[in-house]
Nucleic acid binder design. Structure first.
Lengths: 249, 249
DNA sequence: CCCTTCTATGAATCGTGCT
DNA sequence: CAGCACGATTCATAGAAGG
């Protein structure tokens, strides 16, 4: 498959499939993998899971339109295998002792823990992200209000990477003005999370979406590398990265 | 095994092993199971896991001494089997459509999700409890700062139990004055969680420890049933329940 | 400019009813 | 009857609109 490359002052974004892009990056060159793959979640039956993501994750009758995204249709077995595939290859690009962190929801959490370990990473923990009460309510039960980072290290965790002690729980609301993807993460959250990368290090995001991880890297004085498979989101990401770099100058 | 029974105005506490006690409770009589079994966690090798709980969960040199507790020595396979054993029998005591919620830490989370499902419960979600910055820091990585409730329902979740929409994330610090067990939970947290039981309903805790769940039930106008295997903690729990009922009168 | 009021929305789920 | 499409539903909050 063909891959398009776009270079910035502080990093590079590729347009193309993860597995194609992973072959283009130098080994042991990344200080932090922080990424948000499609969860292939939502719905208890395979039929509902295989609906289009924008339909299954948004309320019926929602006004705000987002472009759809692909790769969200896998059953749980395939999801694990696919995560292992890109995760193992991503691990080779990660420096020894560095951190890999990947988002998941409650339904895929156990599967994601399996996948991270099978990718050869040393599983080190779970970090909850509390989305606050902006999440949909559940009548008679607890609201599904958190998403999770499953994190591990490439070999023994290096304690001397110039990264101090990081918090182990984050509370950050989703702001509409800050959400450019159906599943977009708040910039403020990503800014706090890239602290797991030493200053001036390289942050990788293999599912860049609207580019929030890269923007957070730029804003905090780090470099970035990443890819996005959808042309539409790729262009949005490039625009945001460009703007972030311009504001910095 | 012999079981001792102690009755209170608003409930009953048994001294004895879970599996013995579960046979003494009437089927479909419980509105909420909210319990905190020993996690059999801590350490990645079986040797470190099999140390005495007070040693492995406390820093060396800790001043405040807690009585030790038992049932914390299982490997992960046995842990799941044991949870399935008491979980299935506990489910029969739970009303149809009612909630089962059990605490776990990050390391046992995937195993606990398996156990809850194998116990015949319908897994509905994960609720993070953020212990705040009172947890031990991790140099170079994210602090292990949260514990988790894995929750499910006995059959389809009833929406008309007199329980509204519950929050899906809790932030509550551990206060030393409020912690009478090595793994004791804050009373304020348990008070918020028993909201998953309709007013005047019955809350069950099969691993009562120092009795915080029962105290929370009493304080919020609910009834309770539970058991504790250690004589020492049983007495502490009875004393606290008695005091809570006295304050109410 | 500040305060109040109002409306839209959320990494869904469930039941109904049609094909 | 299995499979699938579709709309009703929940409420705290963000953000816009209005005064």
């Amino acid at each position: 498959m063909t891959v398009v490359r776009r270079d910035f002052e502080l990093g590079t974004l590729f347009l193309g499939d993860v597995l194609d892009v992973l072959g283009l990056v130098r080994e042991s060159s990344v200080d932090l993998v922080l990424t948000d793959p499609p969860y292939s979640s939502g719905g208890s039956t395979i039929e509902t899971r295989q609906r289009c993501p924008v339909e299954k994750y948004q309320n019926t009758g929602t006004k705000k339109p987002y472009p759809s995204f692909s790769g969200d249709h896998l059953d749980q077995r395939s999801y694990v295998n696919w995560c292992v595939e890109w995760g193992s290859r991503s691990r080779l690009l990660l420096k020894s002792g560095a951190v890999h962190a990947q988002f998941t929801d409650w339904r895929q959490l156990p599967a994601t823990v399996d996948a991270v370990q099978r990718a050869g990473l040393h599983w080190r923990g779970i970090v909850p992200w509390d989305k606050t009460e902006t999440a949909r309510p559940t009548v008679g039960g607890f609201r599904a209000q958190a998403e999770y980072l499953v994190w591990g290290s490439n070999g023994p965790l290096s304690r001397s990477r110039g990264v101090g002690c990081l918090p182990g729980a984050f509370r950050e609301p989703v702001r509409r003005s800050d959400k450019l993807h159906v599943t977009g993460k708040p910039t403020a959250l990503m800014v706090r999370l890239v602290a797991a990368c030493p200053p001036n290090g390289v942050v990788a995001d293999w599912f860049a979406g609207s580019g929030t991880t890269a923007v957070a890297a730029v804003v905090t004085g780090r470099r970035f590398i990443g890819c996005e498979v959808s042309q539409e989101y790729f262009e949005i990401a490039c625009k945001r990265i460009h703007e972030a770099e311009a504001r910095l100058a």
